[in-house]
Design a protein around this nucleic acid. Structure first.
Length: 367
DNA sequence: TCCACTGACACCTTTGAAACGA
DNA sequence: ATCGTTTCAAAGGTGTCAGTGG
């Protein structure tokens, strides 16, 4: 069985420094053909070719998202809550797949909480605001689902949980946890790679999905007591902090980092739900899961992609994607220039896909 | 002085081995 | 001998809170 450690060790070998995948940002995605009946299954699903991924527990995610999800990061590594759990369909039952997750910065900013306590004595509030440019991206880590590789039938028979994925702020982490910066916003990305083993991952077909409601702010301590309370109420490990038999911590701790009201959204450098707090989630028809990029001739699982890349090419420095360097952040918006982006954009809200697509799937440090 | 961050702590769930019975 | 269930201790996941340091 492959492990995250195996993958990261493998990915970090010097000879594997060139990113091999072919982004179909420049290829026309194949959305032709009648949609399968499963299309009508639910709002939190996204059909991509024949493969469909749905986010499990979308209501819980949305509840957090509406307040502004925060995820604790610690040196030894902390699990996510809610944790990522997805359902898959449309895979070839006998073909083997590898499932990966990585975290993509939502934007190029670092955030802080501006406290506005005592504006109203009993309803103190604060809000997230931009604190400056984002710090350079930490070493990229990709979490490999421990069942990988497994046949499509295995992935489809039950939901796929990334429960054991851990987040850390330790840039020297040796455990394969995903390294993030505190007070930065991220978004998990799910990759399905059709490959028999880890060593063929880099030349295989893959498809990528994201879910807008899974975005979060990485923090070392919770900033919003509403988030704390939600975590306590839903996470079984935090049962000991539930109200029964305890004095309510809410009466003792000021409520901070609450969602800015509508009037504050227009402020310069001040971010509301759309950037770090709850975002307006589009209606069921607007989006579901979202494809960032796929490779190859799309919608034809099992067909190895058209390689425009040589794994031994010396022209690509250290696995750089043909986009900006890892420390660069996308220019502001309105970047729908190619077909793929536009096509995705139709399924998405706020047009963020154009930005994310500029990030390498596995930046240099992985490859 | 502020505030992001850390580590010890109590409380809880999960896990897995051992014991037991059918 | 095998299998399924129960028990229990250890391991590990939580948020809290006081303290640290830039």
């Amino acid at each position: 069985r492959a492990t995250a450690e195996h993958l990261n060790i493998y990915l970090n070998i010097p000879s594997a420094t060139v990113f091999p995948f072919v982004s179909n940002r420049y290829l026309k995605p194949n959305f032709s053909g009648p949609p399968p009946s499963s299309m009508a299954a639910g709002p939190d699903a996204y059909l991509q070719g024949n493969i469909r991924m749905t986010l499990e527990d979308p209501e819980l995610w949305k509840t957090f998202h509406e307040i502004g999800t925060e995820m604790i990061i610690t040196k030894p590594g902390r699990r996510m809550f809610p944790h990522c759990k997805v359902n898959l369909s449309g895979l070839i039952p006998c073909a083997k797949y590898i499932l990966l997750v990585d975290m993509v910065p939502e934007d190029g900013f670092r955030y802080k909480v501006r406290k506005q306590c005592f504006v109203l004595r009993h309803f103190p509030s604060s809000k997230w605001e931009v604190a400056g440019k984002a710090e350079p991206q930490p070493p990229c880590r990709t979490y490999l689902h421990p069942d990988s590789p497994a046949p499509g039938s295995h992935w489809m028979k039950q939901s796929v949980s990334f429960l054991k994925l851990k987040l850390t702020n330790n840039t020297l982490d040796q455990h394969g946890h995903i390294i993030l910066h505190s007070m930065h916003r991220y978004h998990p990305r799910f990759h399905i790679v059709q490959a028999d083993d880890l060593f063929s991952v880099r030349w295989s077909v893959f498809q990528t999905f994201t879910f807008p409601e899974t975005s979060f702010t990485a923090v070392t301590a919770y900033q919003n007591t509403k988030i704390t309370k939600l975590k306590i109420n839903h996470n079984p490990f935090a049962k000991g902090f539930r109200d029964e038999g305890r004095s309510s911590f809410e009466s003792r701790v000021p409520d901070v980092a609450t969602v800015p009201d509508e009037s504050s959204k227009s402020r310069t450098h001040e971010i509301g739900p759309s950037a770090c707090g709850p975002q307006h989630l589009p209606g069921p028809q607007d989006y579901t899961g979202v494809l960032n990029m796929t490779m190859a001739q799309t919608s034809k699982p099992g067909v190895i992609g058209h390689h425009i890349y040589s794994p031994y090419s010396a022209e690509q420095p250290l696995g750089q994607w043909s986009g900006p360097a890892p420390t660069q952040y996308p220019p502001p918006h309105h970047l729908t220039t190619d077909y793929t982006t536009q096509a995705v954009h139709h399924s998405y809200h706020h047009g963020n896909v154009a930005e994310w697509s500029q990030y390498p799937l596995f930046p240099y440090s992985c490859w």
